[in-house]
Amino acid sequence: MTSLVLFLGESLLQMVLVLLLAPLFAGWLNIVKALLSNRTPASILQPFRDWSKLLSKETIAPQGSSVLFRWAPPAVFSLLLVSSLLVPVLDTRGKTLVFGDALVLTGIMAFVRVLMALGAIDTGTPFGNLGGRREMMVGFLAEPSTVLVIFTASLFSGSTMTFETADHLRAGSLLPTPSLVFGGLAFLLILLGENARIPIDNPATHLELTMIHEAMLLEYSGPSLALMEWGSAIKLVVYMLLGIGLFFPWGLSGSENPAGLMKAGVSLLLKLLAAGFILGLLETLMAKLRIFRVPEFMTLAFLLAILGFLSHFVLEV
Rank of each mutant, 00 (worst) to 15 (best):
A259M: 13
G280M: 13
K271Q: 13
A215K: 02
G172P: 10
D201F: 05
W250D: 08
S52W: 13
S311Q: 06
L281A: 15
L191F: 14
S37W: 09
M240N: 10
T177G: 00
Y239N: 11
L115F: 10
A26I: 04
Y220D: 04
G64P: 07
P62T: 06
V237Q: 05
V147S: 09
G308F: 03
V238G: 04
S65F: 11
L97G: 03
L270P: 08
R133I: 14
L86M: 15
V317C: 06
L169M: 14
S84P: 04
F25C: 14
L207P: 00
K57N: 10
F7I: 00
P199T: 00
A226H: 01
S224C: 10
L217M: 14
T125C: 01
L85R: 00
T284G: 10
L279E: 08
A110Y: 08
K235S: 13
A204S: 12
L270D: 04
P62E: 02
T210E: 15
G139Q: 03
R49Y: 08
V18C: 05
G131K: 05
A34F: 11
N129T: 15
L155N: 01
M298W: 10
L4S: 13
V138P: 04
K95N: 12
A117F: 09
S159H: 04
P258R: 03
L191K: 03
E208C: 00
H213W: 09
